[in-house]
Design a protein around this nucleic acid. Structure first.
Lengths: 292, 292
DNA sequence: TTCAAAATGTAAGTAACTTACAATATACTG
DNA sequence: CAGTATATTGTAAGTTACTTACATTTTGAA
């Protein structure tokens, strides 16, 4: 996707492979990521005690045409990196660091997921969902169960009957009531929960189309007609809630937006009704967001 | 937060306020966002039929010191903007555009929220949550109700009794059972639902500490001890689920991560137990993610 | 220790940005 | 409508800063 060399990665990659003086420049760059793009070659040379030509050579070593390209590339690299999202200051408070970590992990995970999503599969899923008579969302475990619930929350608004139960027994019972024209939508990060696999098999037996949002190559992916497969590495920070479940919700949102656009005239009417029905429930004195 | 002018926004903001020739430059920039940083002033001038001095003036009009600063700023702005996240190609399929819109709106909204979050308030909330005996999460309407449910899903894992009910009557009843040392955590994008305001008032009356995640200056914000206030403009695309509810969940994740770290020894044990309890439920043959 | 290759600095050459001033265009007033 | 003041614009000189060539220094191997 990116034609642009990721300058920061490249500097880190070549760490300790630079010549003596170039390594001084590299160290300076890594220690002053946000400032460097605003400095001239001369200023960097002065700060590091090398010549301006060495600064230029450092840029060429990195694969840039010269210092000008290096500055642009670095500015971009800093801008997109988590470090930039992390803000400037060494004076970050504890909560600012937390925000950085949680939000940054989410942004990274969104980008990772985006690079894995297969557009043909997404389009098949959107088509199937837009045309369905009924959708049964299923997920087990706190995170996936809530993604399923959010799925139902998004799709009922399109005028499609959409249900989600977190209880495996109820899911199995729900699956038994599905038929051709209906969809069973199974959500699981691992793709291996037995209860979920059983429920999907039951629904398929009765003619339902099955969609999965799950891990690449999992049993659930194998079992479903339309598998949306992404691999998200497990987060090593056990104290931080995993970003993957929010990414799963964002993917469900993509499907909901796609299906809404395919049924747009009908959907507009349902959205209008929903909004109308909500007006009297708030202490509302003007044009304010009233949820959705 | 950002010292850097967001060049793209600024160009758009001044659209039709530029002088005749500067407007030509603005149009060129907006039509060639990813290429401009690699062009010289002369090349831009040639492409637009203006002088190099006009190109420089255009940059000064934007608030930059000159073209050099403009180029760096634009490179950064392009890098972080939705358009960059959207990738290069005009050949994007329909589903790729959907992914871009949904994911991009989420990234934008995360950044907006981040700039509004008050770290002192966050730290107070984290402290209160980490020390609480019990947390009652409350939200009404599909989105907020699910944020509340996710809140409970994150906090029970820390060994704190955490409950969420979506039904306004049950919320009122739950609120009546709270006492000093407990927390009522109210979640509402608008901050005005009457049922929620009532339940919070009831819980406060019985000594509970109240935390709100809501809109700036809303009734709910006024009523709570610790109001986490952010304003997220309503999305004009009615067919796309609003990013705000995912951002609310990310904020709850920040609080959960902060509280987890404050209780880390106890939490580690609970997390270990939870993971152990889940092992037999999957068709599991190796070290794979098993949800969380 | 010597020699060859690599690294480095200095300074000249070049590109490109910035600024000043003259020319042109536009807007306002009588 | 004409004249005037102000704003916009282009041209070219001035300046900055990057790039390149070549001489010097450093490093590593024999």
């Amino acid at each position: 996707m990116n034609r642009v060399i990721d300058i920061i990665s490249r500097v880190r990659q070549l760490e300790q492979q630079f010549s003596k003086r170039e390594q001084l420049v590299a160290d300076f760059v890594l220690s002053n990521l946000e400032k460097v793009s605003a400095l001239s070659q001369f200023e960097i040379a002065e700060a590091t005690g090398v010549s301006v030509a060495t600064v230029n050579r450092f840029c060429v070593t990195l694969g840039c045409r010269g210092f000008r390209d290096f500055k642009i590339g670095l500015a971009q690299s800093v801008a997109v990196s988590l470090q930039y999202l992390g803000g400037s200051s060494k004076e970050s408070s504890e909560s600012e660091l937390l925000v950085t970590q949680v939000f940054g992990a989410l942004v990274d995970t969104l980008q990772l997921a985006r690079s894995q999503l297969d557009s043909i599969t997404l389009e098949k899923a959107i088509e199937a969902l837009a045309d369905s008579q009924r959708i049964a969302f299923m997920g087990v475990g706190g995170g996936s169960a809530n993604v399923a619930r959010e799925g139902a929350n998004r799709f009922f608004r399109l005028g499609i009957p959409a249900e989600a139960y977190a209880d495996g027994y109820l899911q199995r019972m729900l699956a038994s009531t599905l038929q051709s024209g209906d969809i069973v939508f199974a959500i699981s990060a691992s793709g291996e929960p037995l209860e979920l696999l059983d429920s999907v098999a039951i629904a398929r037996q009765y003619g339902a189309t099955s969609i999965a949002l799950t891990r690449v190559g999992s049993s659930l992916a194998s079992e479903c007609h339309i598998p949306i497969e992404i691999d998200i590495p497990e987060d090593q920070d056990i104290y931080k809630p995993p970003a993957s479940r929010l990414v799963f919700m964002a993917i469900v949102d993509v499907l909901a937006a796609g299906a809404a656009r395919k049924r747009s005239e009908r959907v507009k009417e349902y959205l209008r009704r929903i909004r109308t029905s909500m007006v009297s429930l708030s202490k509302d004195t003007g044009p304010k967001p009233i949820g959705d």
